[in-house]
Design a protein around this nucleic acid. Structure first.
Lengths: 192, 192
DNA sequence: TAAAAAACGTGACATAGATCACATCCATTT
DNA sequence: AAATGGATGTGATCTATGTCACGTTTTTTA
């Protein structure tokens, strides 16, 4: 059950088997079925979650009822509302399973304990967050400076299998356009 | 010279005086005059920089010659092209002083040493990057889901003094519109 | 302090993308 | 297998923002 997490951690930092054995005691395994929510807007995000299997999305819903996707959480990734997790404030995000999922949850207090007891995990999360920051900065700059078509093409390039796994209207909301616009974009691209 | 950095670090983590004394030996003080560049696109970002005094911006220039600002670096903040700093790859960003600056630079090898020797600094940078990620995610979601006017109002709210310190066309490029659009927005806002 | 450069405002027009409306098409549930 | 709801495509229009052009004001620099 922990092989995949162990592998991901080992790819990033040096960690002893005892340290990882200790870490294992702090995680809570959970299965979550498609369409079920791991987190709903307004409630505090009490877990940070490692995705062993499946696919989730974190997203907001604005006043008009439009959804805006912050991220997809695929196998090997982590999902949470980081701000809510750290502060205990109500979450701004929803997190929903887009496929049946197998997850490893860790609470804030266990996470704090883990970082205190095993400095290697402090580094692991620093690197994880660092890579996430770099990716988020790139996406931000792309959103500011490129067209919807370029952002769509880049998404397909970065995650080739995504369009088989999630409906088009979610891809549209990830790149920041309406489903209608993405639909027209796609027909232009195949015809042209 | 290091009082401000010491203060910022102390606000975030617990650190002994000896640990901070060691850290001090790894930084390179530098003054940078207004309009001078700390980093130019294409060259590797060999330093991460703490801003003691002054103001900088990191930005890209696209094929059309338009500038897009990733961030302003004010007193107490850090600036770098994180990806380039970590990998040694050529930078995608320019970093320019918008005011006369006093900076503390640290190279990648010194930074690695610091994180190895003083685990408290690993935590300091983890928290720093974490807060930056949260802010960047918020800005991304705002860019996807709100109007230019809302983004402008939010920027003024978050950084009330920014509009006295940087020209309007840079504020425009930060919120992702042209200078003409921001100019019109501003006249609407004061009239309405 | 004169000259040059950068910043800013504003009009006319172009365009990407949003909105609204409706018609399939496909999948999940019973 | 029927039925319901979600997902997609597409037309007609609307709107925010971009683009281009030119003039004025302010700030730097020589």
């Amino acid at each position: 059950m922990f092989e995949f997490l162990h592998q991901k951690v080992n790819e990033t930092i040096n960690i002893t088997d005892e340290e990882f054995e200790y870490a294992k005691t702090l995680f809570i395994p959970k299965k979550l079925r498609k369409k079920r929510f791991l987190l709903e807007e307004g409630e505090p995000c009490i877990y940070t979650t490692f995705v062993e299997k499946g696919l989730l999305r974190s997203f907001t819903i604005d006043e008009k009822g439009n959804e805006h996707i912050l991220q997809f959480g695929m196998e090997g990734w982590w999902v949470a509302d980081l701000y809510s997790f750290l502060t205990g404030e109500p979450s701004e995000y929803n997190i929903e399973a887009l496929e049946d999922c197998e997850l490893l949850l860790i609470t804030k207090s266990s996470w704090d304990l883990l970082l205190d007891e095993v400095p290697a995990f402090e580094r692991y999360f620093r690197i994880l967050i660092q890579n996430n920051l770099i990716a988020t900065q790139r996406r931000l700059m792309g959103t500011i400076s490129t067209t919807a078509e370029e952002r769509y093409t880049k998404l397909l390039h970065d995650f080739p299998r995504i369009s088989q796994r999630v409906p088009q209207h979610m891809i549209a909301s990830y790149i920041g356009v309406t489903r209608e616009t993405l639909s027209r974009l796609r027909s232009q691209m195949t015809s042209g």
